[in-house]
Amino acid sequence: MEIGKLIFEAMNLIGLTYENTQSPEEKELLLTASDALSFITTTGQQYEFEDYREDLKTEGPEMVIATFAAREDAEAWLKNHPKPPHMASVLIADEYNLVVYDRARNFRRLLSHHTIEHHLQEMMQAGLPSPVATFDTREEAKAWFYNQPQKPSQAVIQLGGEPYLMAYHRNIDHLAFHPFSLVGRLKGSKPQP
């Protein structure tokens, strides 16, 4: 179903449920859900929402909204952003950071968080996944990836002798590289091949 029609149908269902709900708390929750869908349509973000829903169906790591080569670049972006996002993820040198913004105090901060480490750990529950390809450099891996007819959301590769997760963030067309050794940050040890 086309995304605009899907949102319209969802709002109708919320409206019907609202009419049959007695609890003021539940009515407020339904109104909030309806307002969120209305916000998506009135701000012209239907396609972004559709892409987000598609991204949720993939096995890849958490979505990010931007990527930066260095922390200084990310700090400058956040400092100069007229309306910073709140609780969105960005990558800084392929490491996950959370954007924290308090509008009332104009407080802006980037916090490192371990979402990718948890994702890698989850992938390793049955042991380290086998790589689909081996490369000496990131440039070779990127060339291989971008020549794939169907770009996967993630692929396990061997890069310079180390296992990596190559993750594709479609919304910003960024290919990130995450070494499985990052799991050691959570456990205090390096994963075994």
Rank of each mutant, 00 (worst) to 15 (best):
Met1Phe: 02
Met1Pro: 00
Ile3Ala: 10
Lys5Glu: 15
Leu6Cys: 04
Leu6Asp: 05
Leu6Pro: 00
Ile7Leu: 11
Ile7His: 09
Phe8Trp: 12
Ala10Tyr: 05
Met11Asp: 04
Met11Ser: 00
Ile14Tyr: 09
Leu16Trp: 11
Leu16Glu: 13
Thr17Asn: 06
Glu19Tyr: 08
Ser23Asn: 05
Ser23Arg: 08
Glu25Lys: 09
Glu25Asp: 02
Glu26Asn: 08
Lys27Tyr: 02
Glu28Val: 01
Leu30Asn: 01
Leu31Pro: 03
Leu31Phe: 02
Ala33Arg: 07
Ser34Ala: 10
Asp35Pro: 03
Ala36Lys: 10
Thr41Lys: 07
Thr42Pro: 07
Gly44Phe: 09
Gln45Trp: 00
Gln46Ala: 14
Glu48Pro: 02
Glu50Leu: 00
Glu50Gly: 01
Asp51Tyr: 00
Asp55Trp: 03
Lys57Asn: 03
Glu59Met: 13
Gly60Thr: 02
Gly60Ser: 03
Met63Phe: 04
Met63Gly: 00
Val64Thr: 01
Ile65Glu: 01
Thr67Met: 01
Thr67Asp: 06
Phe68Trp: 09
Arg71Glu: 14
Glu72Lys: 14
Asp73Phe: 12
Ala74Tyr: 02
Ala74Asn: 00
Ala76Phe: 08
Trp77Pro: 00
Leu78Tyr: 04
Asn80His: 05
His81Glu: 10
His81Gln: 10
Pro82Met: 06
Pro84Cys: 10
Pro84Leu: 10
Met87Thr: 05
Ser89Leu: 07
Ile92Phe: 01
Tyr96Cys: 02
Tyr96Trp: 07
Leu98Thr: 11
Val99His: 05
Val99Thr: 07
Val100Ala: 13
Tyr101Thr: 14
Asp102Cys: 14
Arg103Pro: 08
Ala104Leu: 12
Ala104Ile: 13
Ala104Gln: 13
Ala104Asn: 12
Arg105Met: 13
Asn106Asp: 15
Asn106Cys: 06
Phe107Ala: 14
Arg108Ser: 06
Arg108Asp: 04
Leu111Gln: 12
His114Phe: 14
His119Arg: 10
Gln121Thr: 12
Gln121Ser: 15
Met123Ala: 13
Met123Asp: 06
Met124Thr: 14
Gln125Val: 08
Ala126Met: 15
Gly127Asn: 12
Pro129Leu: 01
Ala133Arg: 12
Thr134His: 13
Thr134Asp: 11
Thr137Lys: 15
Glu140Ser: 15
Ala141Met: 02
Ala141Phe: 01
Trp144Ser: 08
Phe145Cys: 05
Phe145His: 03
Tyr146Gly: 03
Asn147Pro: 03
Asn147Cys: 04
Gln148His: 01
Gln148Gly: 06
Pro149Gln: 04
Gln150Lys: 15
Gln150Pro: 11
Gln154Val: 04
Gln154Phe: 09
Val156Glu: 05
Gln158Asp: 12
Leu159Asn: 05
Gly160Gln: 07
Gly161Asn: 05
Glu162Trp: 04
Glu162His: 06
Pro163Asp: 01
Pro163Gln: 02
Met166Phe: 05
Ala167Tyr: 02
Ala167Gly: 07
Tyr168Ile: 09
Tyr168Gly: 07
Tyr168Met: 09
Arg170Lys: 05
Ile172Asn: 06
Ala176Val: 03
Pro179Asn: 02
Phe180Ala: 11
Ser181Glu: 07
Arg185His: 06
Leu186Ala: 01
Gly188Gln: 03
Lys190Asn: 09
Gln192Ser: 14
Pro193Val: 10
